[in-house]
């Protein structure tokens, strides 16, 4: 139902010089740099799939959602949703999608929560019996009961987000886009929201497109994940597959007595994090090779301490992000970047 091919979005960012002279200069020259927020990304999504779109801040997740929903025109590439080009048929597509932005609200600030639902029902022309049915379910599953009559401005962030999500699903959309819906929430609220989204996906076959920088959101809700960084797609596969790729590997953090420098890289090991005398390596061939690795290393450099851990998916990704930051200057190719994960 969603088809994306070679999709890119470039933003112009205008350089603002500061100071008096800078301000005057800004009036006359509009120097800008081009930011590639989404860089040649392709994928497709079937009805009923739940996609997790993972990436650190600034990776281009929101930009992707905006292009998929038609509020942003791509710089190049193709995109269709239900066979329609989103930015050309925005209102048409709007009837069939639901959307939640973690950072923006669709609720009416000064009115009780139920009024926003009532209004949504009119705007989307929802049949009375569908409305009743959904309200009954949402009141219960999202625990809206406890605050449905309160003005939105009095809600906690977690309550507000539950209401936002209910609202986005009220008109039985084919697909729901959620842009960092759990950002800033406590564990209980996160859990409630994840369970709800998962249930809607499983029971109603509503497609989910969820962005997050929290791995857990995606692990619990989505069968398939796409990982992006700096606009590029670097992983597309199931969560299980990613896990099994990583399960054989071990993560070792070694504390040296003196920083051995970059020369320390050995075969079988990938340096994933380097902060001077503390370096983290990933060893791909199981425990034995990890022990060999430490022994070999300790013969050449004095070691103060080391920690061995199983590679937890979240840690790997976090370290992976960090290694990308570092290698930014050395310009890895996409293939090399992928090799860090596989």
């Amino acid at each position: 139902m969603i088809y994306v091919e070679g999709l890119s979005k470039e933003y112009k960012q205008f350089n603002r010089a500061s100071g008096v002279i800078g301000t005057i200069k800004n009036l006359f020259s509009r120097e800008h740099t081009i930011v590639k927020a989404v860089d040649n990304i392709s994928f497709s999504i079937e009805q009923g799939e739940a996609i997790g779109y993972l990436g650190p801040n600034g990776a281009g997740k929101s930009t992707m959602i905006k292009m998929l929903t038609g509020i942003l025109v791509p710089t190049s590439g193709k995109v269709t949703v239900n066979h329609l080009v989103p930015h050309k048929s925005r209102q048409e597509i709007a009837k069939r999608i639901g959307i939640v932005f973690g950072q923006r609200s669709q609720l009416w600030w000064d009115l009780p929560v139920e009024d926003s639902f009532e209004l949504h029902r009119r705007i989307y022309n929802i049949q009375d019996k569908d409305y009743q049915k959904n309200m009954d379910i949402f009141l219960d599953l999202l625990n809206l009961k406890e605050f449905i009559t309160r003005p939105v401005r009095q809600l906690s962030l977690g309550q507000r987000m539950r209401a936002e999500i209910g609202l986005a699903l009220l008109h039985n959309p084919d697909i729901v886009f959620l842009d960092e819906p759990t950002i800033g929430l406590d564990v209980i609220a996160k859990d409630n929201i994840r369970n709800f989204i998962r249930q809607m996906n499983r029971e109603r076959k509503i497609s989910i497109f969820l962005t997050s920088h929290d791995m857990k959101d995606i692990e619990e809700i989505c069968g398939r994940m796409l990982i992006v960084n700096k606009g590029e797609l670097i992983y597309d596969g199931t969560v299980e597959q990613l896990k099994s790729n990583l399960s054989a590997s071990k993560i070792i953090t070694i504390e040296f007595v003196v920083d051995p420098g970059d020369a320390v890289v050995l075969e079988n090991a990938v340096l994933v994090n380097d902060s001077g005398i503390r370096k983290t390596f990933r060893i791909d061939k199981g425990l034995d090779s990890a022990i060999d690795f430490v022994q070999n290393l300790s013969k050449r450099y004095p070691i103060k301490d080391f920690v061995l851990q199983d590679s937890n998916i979240e840690d790997i990704i976090r370290m992976y992000y960090r290694s990308l930051e570092k290698d930014n200057s050395t310009q890895m190719t996409k293939q090399e970047k992928l090799s860090v994960i596989y």
């Binding site: 905006k66 509020i71 925005r90 209102q91 048409e92 709007a94 959307i99 932005f101 705007i123």
Partner: peptide, 12 residues
């Protein structure tokens, strides 16, 4: 604020 985008996403 860019909140207009939410209104543009309504079929109205």
């Amino acid at each position: 604020t860019g909140n207009i985008t939410l209104d543009l996403l309504k079929p109205i």
